[in-house]
């Protein structure tokens, strides 16, 4: 039988709490603090473990199923690609610098989400990317005293 969503959620919670609980051994005690740094996390993790078990048990026992909502076609491929593009952007930020990385990210993600079919759309994509990336950098550096990252490779 396929495990249901709540069982998966409960198992994840249980696994997380057991794993972290194991890590609390080996935390050093302090001469000044009556309770160690392991005291509070252990309480929280124990509660989490119990709740996870309750969730699994409740799900197994009550076979009561809600009517599933009307099926919606879900585009998980696009979600995964968006996460990927965002990940690449974040990795590229320190190397390329804010302006270049943001320019490429804005252009890339706009094209990914909605491939432009006309020249006007391409122009919009380019305009949004250029104005936003250079504009944000300039506004932050000159007016808001926040230095957004410069590229380690490019110095820009």
């Amino acid at each position: 039988m396929r495990p249901t969503r709540d069982t998966v959620a409960g198992l994840l919670g249980l696994g997380l709490s057991i794993w972290l609980f194991a890590l609390t051994w080996g935390l050093p005690k302090s001469p000044f603090v009556p309770i160690g740094p392991d005291f509070y996390p252990r309480i929280v993790l124990a509660v989490t473990a119990i709740l996870s078990l309750a969730l699994i048990a409740g799900d197994r026992l009550a076979r009561r199923r809600r009517q599933p909502a009307a099926p919606v076609a879900r585009n998980y491929r696009l979600v995964a690609l968006t996460f990927l593009v965002f990940g690449v952007y974040v990795l590229a930020l320190p190397a390329l610098g804010f302006r270049l990385a943001t320019l490429l990210f804005l252009a890339g993600l706009q094209v990914l989400l909605e491939p432009p079919r006309s020249r006007g759309r391409w122009l919009t994509v380019a305009a949004v990317a250029i104005v936003a990336s250079f504009g944000i950098f300039a506004v932050f550096e000159h007016y808001l005293s926040v230095l957004l990252p410069r590229g380690a490779w490019t110095g820009f």
């Binding site: 270049l100 490019t154 820009f156």
Partner: peptide, 9 residues
């Protein structure tokens, strides 16, 4: 992009 980068370097 590389052109800009080079100039700034």
């Amino acid at each position: 992009a590389w052109g800009i980068a080079f100039l700034s370097l």
